[in-house]
């Protein structure tokens, strides 16, 4: 029986595809964020800024962001922060997140079931 690709798999594939184009410097930065143990309680507070636009179920134009593997989440936010990913609102929101805050968000969202 053919199986439809799960959204999570697609998201991860997109991230990995994109990750192939990152520079060594960016890879180091992403590694530094992943090395931080995120504070999920702070992440929950920070996540309230995300939920104004991102529903748990996602929508046609705004994806769901719960249940992502931490690495994919960090790669995505780092991409917006560095300007590699283009979306004005996400660049603005990610632009003021510190590495610790990205780690906190990844830790929190990673705990939620998609």
């Amino acid at each position: 029986m053919p199986v439809a690709p799960r959204p999570l798999t697609v998201a991860l594939a997109l991230c990995l595809g994109w990750a192939a184009a990152v520079t060594a410097e960016e890879e180091t930065e992403i590694g530094e964020i992943l090395a931080i143990e995120g504070d999920p309680e702070y992440g929950e507070y920070l996540s309230s800024e995300c939920t104004t636009c991102h529903q748990a179920s996602g929508s046609d134009a705004i994806p769901a962001i719960v249940g992502w593997p931490q690495e994919a989440f960090v790669v995505a936010l780092h991409g917006y922060k560095s300007g590699q990913r283009s979306h004005p609102a996400m660049q603005m929101i990610a632009g003021r997140l510190s590495d610790e805050e990205i780690a906190a968000l990844a830790a929190y969202f990673g705990t939620l079931a998609p």
């Binding site: 939920t51 104004t52 636009c53 529903q55 748990a56 996602g58 929508s59 046609d60 134009a61 705004i62």
Partner: peptide, 16 residues
């Protein structure tokens, strides 16, 4: 795309 984004936002903020 901007308009479609606003539809997603409406559903999200009213759920929030």
């Amino acid at each position: 795309a901007t308009y479609e984004e606003s539809l997603g936002w409406y559903d999200a903020i009213t759920s929030d």
